[in-house]
Amino acid sequence: MTRIVFVVFALATGGATYAGLYGIGGEDAQIAKSIRSGSGGRVGYIGGVK
């Protein structure tokens, strides 16, 4: 049990380090979505303007 939990935690630490370096959705959501859609089109408004 200890070994399994340690392996999972080590993988999670590795994953968080990778995500911190290369991003996995840590980018701006609007831009990321826009890039992913490939259209360059507007994907909507995100923000908290009064």
Partner: peptide, 12 residues
Amino acid sequence: EETVAEFDKGLE
């Protein structure tokens, strides 16, 4: 010359 992303933001 391709638009990669369009986005907007308000500063308040």
